[in-house]
Design a protein around this nucleic acid. Structure first.
Lengths: 218, 218, 218, 218
DNA sequence: GATGAATGAGTTTTCATTCAT
DNA sequence: CATGAATGAAAACTCATTCAT
């Protein structure tokens, strides 16, 4: 029974391998990295909070850097594929095949996902800025898995005349620029627990129609 | 002859006070903080790169933290007021009093400003996530100086029926969520030197009309 | 087989806990603090002399200040109780129940004790002047443990008419003022290894009869 | 009109040489050294509190160590000679030529002197423990100037049968051991502003008759 | 698998001191 | 005479990492 929380899933899937102590290391590290940032969290702190020895951390992960990657990469590796899968799922049995329906599903789905994995999301956003390694992990996933699938969607909407007359890659850029700002500001900068339905609707409207009210609409 | 580069301006305005070495400290610190982040830059590194002694840094700034704040806070203190001033300027003698004209001016103006002060902007964005102090410095400036002025604009556009029927504060939120994502992704995440006119126009169109092509428009 | 040397005793009692290196840290620190004073001894010096890394010192004690307190406080915590115990011991099975006998026992007992723990005593005296913390540790021990017991003695002597007609608390003050000066000058200021029997006898005579030879005594 | 406060006297006697700023340096240094100890007071602190530049301190005194010596040595150089002079003065025109009279004069005289120069006395006591230089300055003054004069007195009292039958040097030792403890504990350890008459009388009585009440006295 | 002990190489910060002006 | 600017050296303290048990 997989939940939407990767963390639990990873822990469960590896429960045969990971001991209680090892689980505590991971949980604590994510929590502290999310709260104070990777650079400002010492392995000693993690060890103390997790009630394990520092040596145990290094036995498991070798280096502190590796610990970070081991927290984030599985998250990345699931964030986008899951998203892609969910999109497919939505495509096949969604009652609302419009662009708006797509947007609503996409945003709600991701809001839920990030809400369920907020701390890791915070770590990811905070560290992606600094670590080239992370960018290099993240980028291909986006380009190869997410972009094509979303592009396919966008193209289908475009064919139906539902989208503005702009190359799809530039539409995609605008869409993800906004969504990136939307999620990062709420979940990371303002440390919100989730995003209200109202704001989701505002976002959908904004993405769809922008802020301008054309004269002909009046 | 004030330029758009705060950094030079600050340096010039204080040129009677700051010595060559002190200028080198500031320049170098901004550069390194922008490149590697505050936590990952040691004062020893700064001192070496600036060709001064570490003692000189601490004599001037007391603590490393204070050095950071002394770099960023003057920037914040000018970023928003200048923006506000420029907006007023635009209001008074702009040939294009439409919402689109306003947007174009706002975005181009800020793109130019950030392009001129890119490194400090990077430091600001990277550190605002971590330092409550910075949030506390930044937030009031936004709320008291920028928000009211932009709100005034938005309201005037709204009265003229140019804006969607949504409370102005929510319009403002969407607008700045997008612009935040737009600037942060380009200038910080992707470390771009500037933003092309084409993308600025895409952004304007996106903000105005969104991505959806209503059936009646076809 | 407990000796009179707290140091060895502490080390022994914790020999299950302290490693050889940790013992060397304590020994070396006491020695250097006694010789040059706390402020004039760097942790680097201690580390080098003890042939351990500075990191080991800080891992154990956290701060240099804490190291000092960890050396002295156990000493204080034993200095006075032991003294009190010895006094009781003396009371129960002493062949000389006079005031002079009491004095002789008290002084000899403390001379021996300090001789056995000279360096710590030096550290204590040198630092008590500066550290309020130490005063706050030392004072209650004196007031609660030593003073009452000595007072009890003095009162019993006074009842027997052996003491001058002065409130006991003022007698106590004079007694300890002298003893303080006696021990501090010899063991700290002049850095003597011990105090000769002759001087002990001089002190006893001084405390008992002062320097004046009343006419009636001639 | 010389007062009993060396400090003022030194300042006045050198007022032709010392500027206001230089006076402030000395005053401030004494005050801070007395309060926190020489090692725990930085030249920067002194400069700031005295409202002069650090450079001025070093221009005057060369080194921090030299500053200390320049504060204390004049004090030492006056403490004992003045004491000796006052003793002679007392000898020539004192209405009370007894040992007790001598003691009362000596103690009151010194209490007054130290009260008037409390901070320097604190510095002296706190630093004499650490600095061999100071011991080497202090010791000869004591041996050559004070000891002979007091010894002379003591011998005269002894000849008159007023003192215990003990070599004068050992009497001297006991006397100064007590006085050292008396002054150091009150003025330095407990940081008292002065000593009450009552305690002075207790001290006189203690020095003269000790604490014992011989049976024959009852 | 887990950890207590130990550390080399830093980190931020302090400090007494110098010197040109 | 006075000081602003600058610093080499060292201070206290931190940190990721290793290793024997």
């Amino acid at each position: 029974m997989p939940t939407n929380n990767l963390f639990n899933d990873i822990l469960r899937s590896q429960s045969g391998k990971r001991t209680v102590k090892q689980q505590r290391i991971v949980e604590t590290a994510v929590q502290l990295f999310a709260e104070k940032g990777y650079s400002n969290t010492s392995t000693a702190e993690i060890a103390k909070a997790a009630e394990v020895s520092e040596a145990s951390i290094f036995k498991q992960y070798g280096t502190k850097d590796n610990l970070l990657l081991n927290l984030i990469i599985p998250y990345i590796k699931d964030f986008f594929p899951l998203m892609a899968n969910d999109l497919v799922l939505q495509a096949t049995n969604n009652g609302d095949p419009t662009f708006e329906g797509f947007l609503r599903f996409l945003i709600r789905n991701r809001v839920q996902f990030i809400t369920d994995n907020r701390e890791i999301f915070q770590v990811l956003i905070k560290e992606i800025i600094y670590k080239e390694e992370l960018k290099k992990e993240l980028f291909p996933y986006f380009v190869e898995i997410v972009a094509p699938r979303v592009t396919k969607y966008l193209e289908s909407f475009k064919e139906r005349g539902e989208l503005v007359d702009l190359p799809v890659d530039r539409i995609l850029k605008m869409l993800f620029t906004f969504l990136g700002g939307f999620f990062a500001s709420r979940f990371v900068l303002w440390n919100m627990e989730s995003i209200s339905d109202e704001e989701v609707e505002d976002a959908i409207r904004f993405i769809m129609n922008g802020l301008y009210q054309s004269t002909s609409d009046r």
